[in-house]
């Protein structure tokens, strides 16, 4: 049997029994923690059949919540996209002092509780906040209104695009851009025709994750929303209200829409990783 133990496969892997046990344990864990919650959302939403599900969605307030979610994501995602590209250009393409600090500061919102992300804007623009009285004197409202929702959403999704682009652009280096410039291209031409094609899939990946978070954010928007029905409730907030009213059917119907969005996000994300792994940040490759 001594000869057997020297098989390379044997020494760097486990026996079939151990392997099966480890796979079974991790699959059971995934089933209990990840898969069943997802199933539960759809099963609760479709409990009384598809017509009942669609009926539960046919509600003026729910429509308003969907519109608001699209509006808030539609404003905050493009803004963070522009910021992400600019920040990545600065950090990935140049060497300057304080770069590491800047990089850490960009990640800061990730380590702030969503509730606090909302609270900081209440402290600035709320009735009791620094600029509250000033805004009120001009009749402007930020907190308990759409601008507050947008600000809180921008805050929580702040790092997504930059985080995705920085390692990617660092890995790609500056050679392509330098070649384009030496051949007489202008700065903008270089960016549009050289850099952007290089980073497009990584950018799309970052935008995808940014959008998923923007549409699904709960804690931060909950604090600044004021929960005015039909006016400042986004879809996740609408889920909470319906759920707390014991209107489970409708709550899970809206939740199912959000879960569908999550599934679409996951599928697109996997497709991007599969097809363009080389053009997506190195840190994501697996």
């Amino acid at each position: 049997m001594a000869h057997d133990t020297l098989q390379p496969d044997r020494v760097t892997s486990e026996g079939p029994l151990a392997r099966g046990l480890l796979i079974a344990t991790s699959l059971l864990f995934l089933l209990l923690i990840l898969a069943m919650p997802l199933l539960a959302v759809f099963s609760e939403a479709l409990r009384k059949g598809l017509p009942a599900f669609l009926d539960a969605l046919k509600d003026e307030e729910t429509f308003a919540a969907i519109r608001l979610t699209l509006l808030v994501a539609g404003i905050s995602v493009p803004l963070n996209l522009v910021f992400g590209v600019a920040a990545a250009w600065t950090i990935a393409k140049f060497e300057f002092r304080g770069k590491a600090i800047l990089s850490t500061l960009i990640d800061l919102p990730f380590s702030v509780s969503p509730v606090i992300s909302g609270l900081v804007f209440v402290m600035l623009f709320g009735a009791q906040g620094y600029f509250g009285p000033l805004l009120a004197s001009y009749g402007l409202q930020i907190i308990f209104a759409v601008p507050g929702l947008v600000l809180a959403t921008i805050f929580v999704t702040f790092p997504f695009v930059a985080r995705e682009l920085i390692p990617l652009m660092q890995e790609q280096g500056n050679a392509d851009e330098e070649a384009a410039l030496s051949l007489g291209a202008s700065g903008w031409q270089t960016f549009w025709h050289v850099t952007l094609p290089n980073i497009k899939w990584g950018l799309l990946y970052g935008v995808l994750l940014c959008n998923a978070r923007a549409m699904g954010e709960f804690g931060a928007v909950s604090v600044v929303s004021g929960h005015i029905r039909g006016q400042t409730n986004t879809m996740p907030l609408q889920v909470e209200i319906l759920y707390n009213e014991f209107n489970f059917m409708a709550a899970f119907a809206v939740a199912a829409l959000l879960a569908l969005l999550a599934l679409v996000t996951l599928v697109l994300k996997s497709l991007l990783e599969y097809r363009f792994s080389a053009e997506i940040a190195a840190s994501r490759r697996h």
Partner: peptide, 25 residues
């Protein structure tokens, strides 16, 4: 491949949805 993709579900699923689903389960 599906299992691998599933691992990122918590990044994509809104927390409120996860909350009510886990509570129900």
């Amino acid at each position: 491949r599906i299992i691998d993709a599933m691992v990122d579900l918590p990044f994509a699923l809104p927390t409120a949805v996860a909350g009510i689903a886990l509570t129900t389960l």
